[in-house]
Design a protein around this nucleic acid. Structure first.
Length: 286
RNA sequence: GGCCCGAUAGCUCAGUCGGUAGAGCAGUGGAUUGAAAAUUCACGUGUCGGCGGUUCAAAUCCGUCUCGGGCCA
């Protein structure tokens, strides 16, 4: 009888909190291999902009799922799960510990809790729904699935659109499809091992400012310039828009840095809100 | 030295005929299972530059001082 495969170890927390460095430490400690759980470090061509691990870091331990997608490739949490699961299994089969590292809360939760039994996104339907006024989306959702409408933040176009999309694609009520899934996943609570990095807000802001400065000095501008003609999925990365403004001469370098700083701070706050609520790991102060 | 303009939230500014003030940004908290570095919701007491005066009542009118900026010497 073969021994049980090593359980994955999760390292998460807000941006610029030091996840990559901690992952390396744990890779040594647990004889592990690192797997990315960051939505934008998946992409090639924005390694600096997305603060992906450096070549020096990557050389120290096997790293997986960094720079594996072309900039124009769309992605979502479900696709990420499909990419990550086989890699986790292969690492475990070698007797190594998967060290899953990243700050994309939704991606992590898809990995740990699995997808709800819902139809996946449909690009052409989204184009169609995007053309309708929010009021109409709300009206259609309310008609098809009043229960789901009552549970949805109706001011949030994305959420309304997604709920309606589920109803239209499945021909069933989104509320019915979602039911049961949450209860099923509740058992995972507190069972997984890992760390949520927490730092005082002030310290985190200092780290963000430092990282933004280094990023702008060490190639992020060139990365965005190189993608100038590409209509890419990764345009949503923080810093992309700001650097494009810089390249067009609309703002100066210091303004660009300030805008990126502010956007990164806001992102870090959203991540903290997410991880504060997620109780499947026990938070550990660093 | 003289004249003019400005000083209001952390920042940029609005504030009508005098009735003790509100936007954007920043910040904080929340939502968030298939776009998530996305999307979205909520939260505004501050010596209205200081001191005096007029007035029932002053961010608002008057005087004066301080600090910016400008013009003329």
């Amino acid at each position: 009888m073969s021994p049980a495969p090593p359980e994955p170890f999760y390292i998460c927390g807000p941006t610029a909190s030091g996840k990559s460095a901690l992952a390396l430490a744990y890779a040594r400690k647990l004889d592990g291999e690192i797997i990315n759980a960051d939505a934008f470090q998946l992409y090639r061509g924005i390694e600096t902009l997305s603060a992906a691990p450096s070549l020096t870091e990557i050389a120290q331990s096997p790293h997986h799922l960094y720079g594996v997608l072309a900039p124009s490739t769309p992605n979502d949490a479900g696709s990420y799960r499909s990419l990550a699961l086989p890699i986790i299994q292969r690492i475990q089969a070698r007797g190594k510990t998967p060290i899953i590292t990243g700050g994309s809360g939704l991606y992590l939760k898809f990995l740990t809790h699995g997808p709800a039994p819902l139809p996946r996104a449909d690009a052409s339907l989204r184009v169609e729904l995007d053309g309708l006024p929010l009021g109409e989306l709300v009206a259609r959702l309310t008609e098809l699935d009043p229960l789901e409408a009552s549970r949805t933040a109706l001011e949030n176009r994305r959420f309304v659109s997604r709920a309606l999309e589920i109803c239209l694609l499945s021909g069933r009520k989104a509320s019915a499809l979602r039911d049961g899934w949450e209860a099923q996943t509740a058992r995972i609570s507190g069972k997984l091992r890992g760390i949520v990095i927490q730092r005082p807000r002030e310290i985190l802001h200092q780290r963000i400012a430092r990282r933004t400065r280094i990023m702008l000095e060490s190639g992020a501008i060139q990365e965005v310039a190189a993608l100038a003609d590409v209509s890419s999925h990764c345009e949503k990365a923080i810093g992309f828009r700001e650097i494009r403004c810089l390249l067009r001469g609309e703002i100066d370098l210091s303004t660009c840095g300030e805008l990126i700083n502010a956007a990164t701070r806001q992102y870090a706050k959203r991540q903290e809100t997410w991880f504060r609520r997620e109780q499947w790991l026990s938070p550990e102060k660093i």
